[in-house]
C-alpha cells in the first residue's frame, strides 16, 4: 500500500499512497531551495545538505497538514533556516572550544582553500554582519530569482515588508563591502 515507485518513503512512517507521491514530488521540487537556504547560513555543502534533509524528515510526518505547495515551501524555508542557524551556533561554540585546546596555527583544509576566494569571503563577512531577518530576505531574494512576491509568500509577510528589509539589507551590504574593500 505504501510502496511508491520512486523513493519508497514510508516504510516505517506511513502516509497514504497519494501523499507519498506528493511528498516525493515536493522533495524533488524544493530540495534546491532547502539546500540553498541552509547553505546561506552554513556555507558548507555537506552541512547544508544534512540540515535540508533533516528539515524534509521533519516535514514528512506533518505532510498531511502541509500539502499545499505554498504552505509546504514556507514551512520548509522557516524550518531549514532555523535548523541551519542552530547548527551554525553549535558549530561556532564547538569551534571556539576547539580553538582553545588545539594548535592555533592549524592549516585550513583543502576544501576551505578551494571554496574560499577573496570576493566570496568578503561578501559572506558582509552577509554575516546583517541582522537575521535581513539575511534571510537577501538570501531568499537571490534564490527565488528576485521575486518579491514569492519571498513574501515564503516568509508569510507583506510584500512591503520584504521590500523594506531588502532595501536595508542591500544598503548594509553595500556599506560593508565598501568598508571591506
Amino acid at each position: 500500500m505504501h510502496e511508491s515507485a520512486g523513493l519508497g518513503f514510508g516504510t516505517l512512517v506511513t502516509l497514504d499512497a497519494p501523499l507519498e507521491r506528493e511528498f516525493e514530488q515536493r522533495v524533488r521540487d524544493s530540495s534546491a531551495l532547502a539546500v540553498r537556504v541552509a547553505y546561506g547560513v552554513l556555507r558548507q555543502r555537506l552541512d547544508a545538505e544534512d540540515v535540508a534533509q533533516e528539515a524534509f524528515a521533519k516535514a514528512y510526518p506533518r505532510f498531511a497538514r502541509l500539502r499545499g505547495r505554498d504552505e509546504f515551501r514556507a514551512w520548509l524555508v522557516r524550518t531549514t533556516w532555523r535548523l541551519a542557524i542552530d547548527r551554525w551556533r553549535a558549530d561556532r561554540r564547538r569551534s571556539a572550544r576547539e580553538l582553545k585546546t588545539s594548535n592555533p596555527t592549524a592549516v585550513p583544509s583543502a576544501e576551505d582553500v578551494a571554496v574560499g576566494n577573496e570576493r566570496a569571503e568578503r561578501l559572506w563577512q558582509a552577509i554575516d554582519a546583517l541582522p537575521e531577518k535581513l539575511r534571510l530576505v537577501i538570501v531568499l531574494f537571490a534564490i527565488e530569482g528576485h521575486d518579491v512576491a514569492e519571498v513574501a509568500r515564503l516568509l508569510d509577510v507583506p510584500e512591503g515588508t520584504v521590500k523594506s528589509r531588502l532595501f536595508l539589507a542591500r544598503k548594509g551590504l553595500a556599506r560593508s563591502l565598501q568598508c571591506l574593500a
Binding site: L7, S31, V35, R36, Q53, L123, F141, L173
Partner: peptide
C-alpha cells in the same frame, strides 16, 4: 550584490540527496 549573493549560494543538491532524506 544580488547577483553575487545568488552566485554564492547557487549550489545544487547532490544526487544522493533524496536517498539521504
Amino acid at each position: 550584490i544580488d547577483e553575487t549573493v545568488l552566485g554564492a549560494i547557487a549550489i545544487e543538491p547532490s544526487i544522493d540527496f533524496r536517498r539521504g532524506v
